[in-house]
Design a protein around this nucleic acid. Structure first.
Lengths: 334, 334
DNA sequence: CTGAAAGCGCTTACAG
DNA sequence: CTGAAAGCGCTTACAG
């Protein structure tokens, strides 16, 4: 517990025989310091092992150089077991690190934690906020927006809030997935949709419907919550509703994996009896049996784009919304 | 960008007609304030929407109420695709949140980021550090220890550093897995080990060896890096080295999943021809074909124990190392 | 180019 | 129980 008492700017100044202002200038790399003095100060910093106190610094600069990544953690724990979550976190960390910024992770699980996050942001702890996986009813985005703190969203935010975001073409990706099923002669194409209050879920369902429209096929819908388990449950439901179905489009890979298992247990062969297409192209999609045909969600690019939006001042931005293309990856399941 | 100017303690004091010291006492819940004055101050706080400035506060208190979770991110990206990582993050967040603390996530990917993390911790940004997935050669643990900042580790740290940690019984778990293979009559039992510079990998290999010792079976070892891909590669290698093998213990589930795929492609049936046991019991283990027999790694409990160690002052700790039991979960693959 | 001084917004002995 | 005052460790106009 006896944390070593760290040397201050004052100590460095004394040692180098200059004023605190000068040391501050050297530390912050201001050009207006003679090379000799700079060298002197540098030596003192080195000898003392000086490291600026961050609280003192941000008290005056009003900056913290750290940004919050706020993930809503709904009861279904959607993201906690979702590998995309890890990838977003990692990408955001790496991008921000390149800009010498820090990431503070915040999970918005309960109403209580929502209040905490609001206070945290309002308290000036961070210079900006990234929102991920927000549900429609979430009051947080509006609250943060109101504080005047820069904020961006991973994925199109729920209606009624106006903020920059990076998304992928969920509608188009889903449409292509279903068109592929149509093109390969499938006649009864079901879908396992995501939670209705999450935009990605809505958009993928829209894509499914768009593809079906005018094909003469009717839509067969079950709803999951993006977990494997829910995918298995939904698949069983679907099989009961329409034992003749010969294809299913799951709104994410986790649910597709659940569906694969349910189909296996029901004695259906994939893709012979039932074709399965997922969405996301998570690592596991290559390792299912059979390997999963899916739509690639450009997670890294999307997270990177979000960070760029966050770090670019509004005045310098050419756009407020980045939509990345998705791509159908055909493997063996469809 | 026009961040609203927030009211200060000063403003609250003026409005409530009291001194700044009194407002500070109310804000911090000190008991030495008359109920009437407290009520007055509360009202002023409410009306003004006052929220304490965190930089100013920690400048004087020397506390930040936030803790760093530092994950080493080796080239193999072990953790980025590992669901355990997400679970640890989530558990740590929830636990710390319950104690009204914040989590700052830091990825120690490059030497450059190591330096940044050192500066960050030394700069007083956090009150303590949690280390996860450190490799043997990592200089960070020793550096942080030297600063006198409280630090704990998820998993037994590499030799030569002395710090509290929470781990699970990797050796015992691996031993039990292999004993199960022996008990079910397997004769040529291979293992896919983890990276030799990671303690969990070493310990699980030790367990494998212990179980084999005296059984008359020789050990057959391939090495992976905890990814699915490496599991598949190692399995192919193993099959080449010993086409007669009838069982394999993979040091984690991700590699077991890779092994399952390699076996399928090689035309081996699981468990009929080759039994497979993994380690961790990640969610996906229930959804493989066949469902994976594995050793349960109590991730949530281990992360919780780590946080407790971090938050408990050394003087109040009854122990510095918590070892959680593991459990063999028998499904269909072995 | 360099320094003296003010000030960022809090907390905390110290008096009263 | 309350207030005046000092101080935490920096940065930043302002002079010179």
């Amino acid at each position: 517990m006896s944390r070593t008492r760290r040397p201050t700017l004052e100590a460095v100044a004394a040692r180098a025989g200059v004023s605190r202002a000068t040391v501050s200038r050297v530390v912050n790399g201001l050009p207006t310091v003679t090379p000799e003095i700079r060298a002197q100060v540098m030596r003192a910093i080195e000898e003392l092992g000086y490291i600026p106190n961050s609280a003192a610094r941000s008290l005056v600069t009003k900056r913290t150089d750290s940004y919050a990544l706020v993930a809503s953690e709904p009861p279904s724990r959607v993201f906690s077991d979702d590998p995309l979550f890890s990838i977003v976190i990692r990408t955001v960390s790496v991008e921000l690190e390149a800009a010498d910024k820090q990431v503070v992770l915040m999970l918005a699980s309960s109403p209580r934690s929502h209040a905490r996050i609001e206070r945290y942001v309002a308290g000036g702890h961070v210079d900006g906020v990234m929102l991920i996986s927000m549900h429609a009813a979430d009051p947080l985005p509006a609250a943060i927006l109101r504080m005047g703190v820069p904020v961006v969203s991973y994925g199109r935010p729920a209606v009624n809030v106006e903020m920059p975001y990076a998304d992928n073409d969920n509608v188009g990706g889903a449409r292509r997935a279903v068109e592929h099923l149509l093109a390969t002669g499938r006649r009864r194409i079901a879908t396992i949709a995501g939670p209705p209050d999450m935009i990605a879920g809505q958009d993928r369902l829209t894509g499914y419907r768009e593809a079906l429209r005018g094909s003469g096929r009717r839509s067969i819908v079950a709803v999951g919550d993006f977990t494997r388990e829910s995918g298995a449950v939904a698949m069983r439901q679907l099989l009961e509703d329409d034992p003749q179905l010969d294809a299913v489009f799951a709104a994410n890979d986790l649910m597709a994996i659940g569906a694969l298992q349910a189909l296996r247990r029901a004695g259906r062969r994939v893709p012979d009896d039932v074709a399965v297409v997922g969405f996301d192209d998570i690592e596991a999609a290559k390792f299912t049996d059979p390997p999963l045909t899916t739509v690639r969600h450009p997670v890294v690019d999307q997270a990177t784009a979000m960070v760029r939006l966050l770090l670019t001042p509004p005045s310098e931005r050419t756009t407020d919304r980045v939509i990345l293309p998705t791509e159908l990856i055909v493997r063996d399941s469809a």
